[in-house]
Design a protein around this nucleic acid. Structure first.
Lengths: 344, 344
DNA sequence: GTCAAGTGGGAAAAGGTTTTCTCACTAATA
DNA sequence: TATTAGTGAGAAAACCTTTTCCCACTTGAC
């Protein structure tokens, strides 16, 4: 018995459906139909074929299948986020959503190089990807390559998309609101916002939401995305003679880190004297600050998951309404604000 | 002219070699041979075909080609490094090396889940990947899945491989030597080593090299991979009554960051009083410390590049000698040690 | 005993490409 | 003139599946 199977496998190369058919003593069409639960045949035949296929370790060749079905069960993920801080969670979400559907993901990091982008896109199209997801490190910038006239569906995630397409992004206004409301709920009255360059769309969006919730007159300090700007901002805030803040909403976790360090250096206690909230929930920063940082998570993994399901829907011809979908952020409570809400 | 081309394209779906043949008034075999520079034909015919193919935007279908050639021009990258700190540079190197050869990369993040790993490996095999590169976050741990009996070549990068295979890793001993020699060259005499858990192979390897260069009697403090351990270690070192160190070689950049912060809090100047070297060159940490961190770079991108070229060689049947290849590290000089060497 | 309907299964085409073989024709040689 | 050698190009097979169509056979009804 075993020997017969070995002989069947003994043929050169991979096991094909021919081997299954031969081992079961039937034709390849019947074998195919048995394995795919299509066509008509005796239940007993069907199950025998399945059993034999499993025994000899048959796995269908996706290339041949794709050639016929015009579906490769493959999608491309294009990113210009070299460092991968945003891309990786998105990628994880996509992969997570699609692995059940047998879809694999090509990852192409194209930096800011249009030529490289072109090469990767062409390679993906040659490989008949069912769709492409474009992602980046900035909501208000496009990838350095035009994806609008491809004959495969394109979905944008965390990067600016073309008109008439689907774009997923985080709801930064809602995230900012979450942060400021949390500070307010903890009784903080003199809240300030220390954030990145005003040229970033999401900076403006977060700042606007902050003003809406905290009050128009509350100060916003624009700067750069670095710890040192956090230090500097604290120096600025504490240099004047006026009232000092008791809550600081930071534009990202790195700034928050700088702020917290600067406060500690001044002997100001976090969270007793001042509460600090970050943005991004970049674990590696947020969890290592002292105290660990309460921060806003953009749910990038969920964003990736939805982008994955959407590109799949488009690939299968299901209708999807174009537009920008804003996904809600989530507040991750650690210890930089005080408050007694249990850790999430 | 344009209209004729449009009509040619007007057929349903993608442009195939049939369209090229039709447009050129020749058979598909001749078209194929013309485009691939094989077979015999008039030079003029060959060039005309190429020109027409370019004009109508023909691109060969990689699925069909792969079906026949048994090469999919696709490889799989398997990683359990969720955060991507090590995987991303490796990925960038692989992609960089292979894009010229028309090879695309499937990225599969499998966490520590063997079942998920199995699913991804099977999906990759179904898609006829030409090879697999396994990478991880730890040199001395295997991925949670056995890749030894696949009928595609497997190369290991920054993770422990199976016997008889090719494994690429960084030369941690050489990297540690680089760091300690640099401290010595700057005149530091009382060097200590603050590092991660002794259970890590690379920790032991770096520590051994450190002892060899700095002297057997120099102290090694094992701990964990975190900033807070860096703080703690400084507290330990400065709590005793003995001579204080003037050079600290840290097991990674996060520890170094903690060490530098702790030193500053004690009013000890870096680099004037104490020089600090890190390990990993994790830009986001190393560049944000104050002062910026001199650290050892493991050249992961180069490692990825070599892994990519190796798996390609194996896929093409070129012989590759099995074994462990250690790639040299590089010292990245910033400002945490002093010294007048220009920034690299 | 004929017809219709239903059932189990196979033959063949299709998908796009590459490769091997074969053929027709020309030019050069014997 | 008859043979050879060389040249340009096409037909067909192969890669592995899926799917459509068809065939042979059985059963039940008339």
């Amino acid at each position: 018995m075993e020997e017969r199977l070995d002989t069947a496998e003994g043929k050169r190369g991979r096991i094909t459906i021919h081997d299954v058919a031969a081992a079961a003593g039937i034709s390849i069409s019947t074998a195919s139909k048995a394995l795919n639960d299509t066509g008509r045949m005796g239940l007993e035949t069907r199950e025998r074929v399945k059993r034999i296929a499993a025994e000899i370790g048959y796995r269908p060749n996706a290339l041949a299948r794709g050639l016929l079905s015009k579906r490769s069960f493959t999608i491309g993920l294009l990113t210009n986020d070299t460092y991968g801080r945003f891309t990786l969670p998105v990628m994880a979400g996509i992969s997570d959503a699609l692995v059940d559907h047998g879809v694999s993901v090509f990852l192409c990091a194209i930096e800011e190089d249009p030529a490289l982008g072109q090469i990767h896109v062409e390679a993906m199209l040659d490989k008949q990807v069912d769709g492409i997801i474009a992602t980046g490190k900035r909501l208000d910038r496009r990838l350095p390559i035009d994806l609008s006239n491809l004959n495969v569906p394109v979905v944008y995630a965390f990067t600016e998309g073309a008109p008439g397409t689907v774009t997923f992004r985080s709801d930064d206004a809602q995230g900012a609101q979450l942060a400021v409301e949390w500070l307010a709920k903890l009784g903080r009255k003199r809240i300030v916002h220390v954030t990145g360059p005003e040229s970033f769309f999401s900076v403006r969006e977060r700042a606007d939401a902050y003003c809406r919730v905290a009050g128009e007159e509350r100060p916003v300090l624009f700067g750069v995305w670095s710890e040192s700007w956090g230090h500097e901002a604290v120096a600025k805030l504490w240099s004047g003679s006026g009232e000092k803040p008791d809550g600081i909403f930071c534009g990202n976790d790195q700034i928050a880190r700088g702020v917290i360090d600067a406060l500690r250096e001044r002997g100001i206690r976090v969270p007793q004297d001042v509460s600090v909230v970050g943005f991004d929930n970049w674990e590696i920063v947020a969890a290592q600050t002292r105290p660990p940082l309460t921060t806003v998570d953009m749910e990038l993994k969920e964003l990736g998951r939805q982008a994955g399901l959407t590109v799949l829907a488009l690939a299968e011809g299901r209708p999807v309404e174009p537009g920008i979908r804003k996904l809600p952020c989530r507040l991750v409570v650690r210890q930089s604000c005080g408050g007694d809400t249990p850790r999430i």
